[in-house]
Design a protein around this nucleic acid. Structure first.
Length: 915
DNA sequence: AAGGACTCATA
DNA sequence: GTATGAGTCCTTT
């Protein structure tokens, strides 16, 4: 049977460009994408197909652009380095004897579709070679799909079903539902591959799903209904035509003899040594070995000395380990990753390590896989000792993705990693805060066009998940070695992007990277809590909750679940007919605090519920939970700080979250009092006073605001005096409260509506307040307007230190989304600058504390918590005076603003006393 | 079991 | 009105 290979040229060019490192030849011409495409072609030619074609888009609009003007509007123009490779690519294709097809007015996809169907009808065996999953709609007897970059092959309806969960005939419906952000075709919001497949499985077709739209429940149903009008168009856009008029027929696409001289010239020019060698060696032999375009062949090409069989190597012998250690020693930098049996780095046991020294080459060293018939593995302690010199050498640069985790794990196994120089998560965070997620799967897809193996794919999920130590070693190698490989490849893509932006590079190099070991130390230090005290509080809260519950039952005349907003809503608003004044975002009558306060005068029950809720929250979130979080090894609670968690640059804290421990109420402060220092030590806390308002003064340069801070005034009182035009001492407490609300509101980008709600006044009055404020502080008004304008013009705003936050929705057609983005734009420079400042302070204070260790090496104070504008320490009692003398100066000294930074401190036996 | 909705703790 | 994380309920695999 004769074979026809149809190659989706544009798809490969783009994918190779993004997947491969930016290679260039001796003359500096970019060659990465070209190299990938050439290897892919050589792979296909090795199969010696009788017919083949390389299909690319012709310039000019196609019918899809006419159907939908925004089609592919999200596509950035082709990068220059890629554009430069198009002509050489076509030269190589042509010299290889492969016919090139570019049909004006028709997309390459449709040319491929039409030829594939015709050829299959004629009995040819068709292979479509593409990286584009849309082609799965064409799979049928006689038509198969291959992606040489991922190595996947879809050659039957079953294979398509296995991969997508739908039949080939349903692929267009499936794509229509999901949409395609690359082509700017919006689908159903929140409907991904799973939901689309689920619906199609359930209803059969897009038409049937649309017919059911009214009956669909929940947010997803709402999203579906919103998307209804555009779904038929989506389906047309994603449908590959199989009937476009073509002058060319499948049988015209015979593979021609290659032009050896032309190829030699091209390969020489672009430095494709491997291909050149093979060309000359096999000029007579037709079937010379030709690697397909995998990342491994890049390694072979760029550094033949390291060309070893296989991309990822499982290290099970001493000889293999020695060889890899030699590679690591020789490399300028290497990527590493650790595999463990727990997500909690302070409880995790090391199961294996992976390393990569060049893109496409990586190893996995299994160390503690335990399952029936598991192969013998190298001794963990011995491997760690062998690696220790490398890992602890500050001059040996190491890369990771979220390496803080690996630092913890290795620390627990006695290795103090030094020279942790780069982290791809943080590179991405600094480059693209607000635009993208920063986990490796997302980064690989975004920057490499590469889909990583998911943890669930090797370890399962939910109740059936197995620990990594029980994952079969070959699967573990594919997963773990890939992590190191992808980390290295990501770094090679992200680092140049950072280098191109000096301000961002400085944020990354001077703030984020130095913070990594500091955060690791804080997490490792943990905090001591008084478990007995919390248990007493839990018992006390339980008693009081029970009493309130009984009172509530009596008031309601029946029992109900006080924790259920739904039952409570039915009781209050349906049975008792109390007015529902507040709505939830979902449109239901809200039972939140504001709603209950609003009806507390009409009935006794709302107050009882409010009291019950405040106690229930304290018990379930804090007094019950914190004792469970004590690490049995250390007897302390170790939170986890997320460095790339908040787009503004703030840290976030989880497991447990120690950044939301109560402080406002007396009840809450009792919980703070359970954060204690051990005997002989004290809790010492320092916080920046009004840091965000000070930053607003700095950024706006408003004279009145600058003056108030320079004079050390009570800023809210000063605001009230300024706005009302009266002396400071004449400001009433009510006036001060209003001024404080305005000051905070400004930081959050508020409008009159929000201020009115906050102060319980009407909107016009709130508007008057704001107008009056801006008349006294015109610099602030101008700054707010400048910031909005910057956000609109550039799509991002910046902190004082140059950190950027992108505002994805700043040009949204949805007015509410756009307004939200504007408020975020106002807030981000202030919140973000404050975050930059405290991060710098943490690095400075940590360095000083390291200097202050005793002769025996014991720390005299530990940094134990960061709460956005506050740093908390546990210090030897006799070290407290030194700490109090030094830390405020360090904290205040890390930024040079137009206003002084004021740091206030406190000390006590527990956090409540110190705060 | 997983995920959305709701509520509420912090700066 | 900014930025988070987490507990509970409850519906839907």
């Amino acid at each position: 049977m004769t074979r026809l290979v149809l190659i989706d040229g544009s798809s490969y060019l783009y994918r190779a460009f993004h997947a491969l490192p930016p290679l260039s030849n001796a003359a500096g011409e970019p060659t990465g994408a070209l190299f990938g495409v050439v290897n892919m072609l050589r792979g296909h030619l090795k199969e010696q197909p009788e017919h083949i074609a390389f299909v690319v888009d012709a310039p000019g609009p196609t019918f899809r652009d006419e159907m939908y003007p925004d089609y592919k509007a999200n596509r950035p123009p082709m990068p220059d380095e890629l554009r430069a490779q198009v002509a050489p690519m076509l030269d190589v294709v042509s010299a290889l004897g492969i016919p090139i097809l570019r049909e004006p007015g028709v997309e390459a996809d449709d040319v491929i579709g039409t030829l594939a169907v015709r050829a299959a009808e004629q009995g040819m065996q068709v292979t479509i070679s593409t990286g584009d999953k849309d082609f799965a709609q064409l799979v049928r007897p006689g038509i198969a799909l291959v992606n040489t970059m991922s190595g996947s092959r879809l050659d039957s309806e079953e294979a398509v079903r296995a991969k997508f969960g739908v039949r080939p005939a349903q692929i267009v419906d499936y794509l229509a539902l999901m949409g395609d952000s690359i082509d700017n075709v919006p689908g159903v919001e929140k409907c991904g591959p799973k939901t689309a497949a689920k619906w199609l499985d359930e209803y059969g077709s897009l038409d049937a799903v649309m017919a059911q739209a009214e009956a669909m429940k929940g947010k997803l149903g709402e999203n579906l209904r919103a998307a209804l009008p555009r779904l038929p168009l989506n389906r047309q856009l994603v449908t590959i035509k199989t009937d476009v008029p073509l002058d060319v027929a499948p049988e015209d696409l015979a593979l021609r003899p290659r032009d050896v001289d032309a190829l030699r010239a091209l390969y020489t020019r672009y430095g494709f040594n491997q291909a050149l060698k093979e060309l000359d060696a096999g000029a007579s032999a037709a079937a010379a070995p030709a690697p397909v375009a995998t990342a491994a062949s890049v390694a072979a090409q760029t550094d033949p000395a390291l060309a070893a069989p296989g991309e990822y190597e499982t290290v099970l012998t001493q000889a293999q380990l020695d060889a890899w250690i030699a590679r690591l020693q020789a490399a300028a930098e290497f990527a590493f990753d650790s595999e463990t049996d727990s997500l909690d780095p302070l409880r995790a046991n090391l199961v294996g390590l992976s390393f990569s020294v060049e893109p496409g080459r990586a190893c996995y060293i299994p160390l503690a896989h335990v399952y029936p018939d598991a192969p013998a593995q190298l001794d963990r302690a011995a491997v760690l000792e062998a690696l220790r010199p490398l890992l602890e050498d500050p001059a040996k640069h190491k890369l990771g993705q979220h390496g803080k985790y690996d630092l913890h794990v290795l620390c627990r196994h006695g290795i103090q990693v030094r020279g942790y120089a780069d982290d791809t998560m943080l590179e991405s965070f600094v480059l693209e805060a607000g635009l993208a997620r920063h986990d490796m799967d997302s980064l690989a897809r975004r920057h490499l066009g590469y889909t990583t193996i998911k943890y669930e794919d090797v370890a399962g999920k939910g109740a059936r998940q197995i620990p990594f130590s029980q994952v079969a070693i070959d699967a573990a190698t594919r997963y773990a070695a890939e992590d190191a490989d992808i980390t290295l490849r990501l770094h090679r893509v992200l680092r140049p992007k950072l280098e191109a932006e000096p301000a961002l590079l400085a944020v990354y190099r001077d703030i984020e990277m130095p913070l990594v070991p500091v955060l690791a130390r804080i997490e490792d230090n943990g905090v001591m809590i008084d478990v007995e005290e919390l248990r007493r509080q839990s018992a006390d809260l339980s008693r009081r909750m029970l009493a309130l519950q009984q009172r509530a039952t009596a008031l309601a005349g029946r029992s109900f679940n006080l924790d259920s907003p739904k039952q409570l809503g039915a009781l209050l608003f349906d049975e008792l007919k109390l007015p529902a004044r507040v709505k939830t975002p979902g449109g239901a009558p809200s039972t939140n605090e504001e709603a209950l306060e609003a009806i507390a005068d009409l009935h006794e029950l709302p107050r009882v519920i409010l009291d019950y809720r405040s106690l229930a929250k304290l018990r379930s979130t804090y007094t019950d939970k914190l004792p469970e979080m004590v690490n049995p090894d250390t007897g302390r609670v170790h939170t986890s700080y997320h460095q790339a968690g908040a787009a503004t640059g703030r840290l976030s804290s989880s497991d447990p979250n120690l950044q939301n421990i109560p402080v406002r109420t007396e009840e809450g402060r009792r919980i703070r009092a359970a954060f204690i220092a051990p005997p002989g030590r004290r809790i010492v806390s320092f916080d920046y006073s009004q840091i965000e308002l000070r930053i607003m003064a700095h950024l706006s340069q408003d004279p009145a605001l600058l003056r108030a801070f320079a004079q050390g005034a009570d800023i809210h009182r000063a605001t009230a005096a300024e706005v009302l035009g009266k002396p400071l001492e004449a400001v009433t407490s009510e006036e001060r409260r209003a001024a404080k609300a305005i000051n905070f509101g400004l930081i959050y980008g508020m409008g009159a509506f929000g201020l009115a709600r906050q102060l319980g006044i009407d909107r016009g009055q709130a508007q008057d307040y704001i107008a009056l404020y801006f008349s006294r502080y015109p610099g602030v008004r101008d700054y707010m307007e400048r910031t909005r304008a910057q956000a609109r013009e550039q799509g991002y705003v910046e902190t004082v230190f140059g950190r950027r936050l992108a505002l994805e929705y700043i040009h949204s057609r949805n007015a509410a989304q756009r307004a939200g983005a504007e408020r975020a734009a106002i807030n981000a420079p202030m919140q973000g600058t404050a975050a930059d400042i405290i991060k710098r302070a943490m690095v400075a204070v940590d360095a000083w504390l390291e200097d202050q260790r005793t002769a025996a090496g014991a720390p005299r104070a530990l940094m134990i918590l960061q709460v956005h504008d506050e740093l908390v320490f546990e210090a030897d009692a006799d070290f407290v005076p030194e700490l109090q003398a030094k830390v405020p100066a360090l904290m205040a000294g890390v930024a040079d603003l137009r206003v002084p930074l004021l740091v206030e401190g406190g000390v006590g036996a527990n956090w409540d006393e110190a705060h």
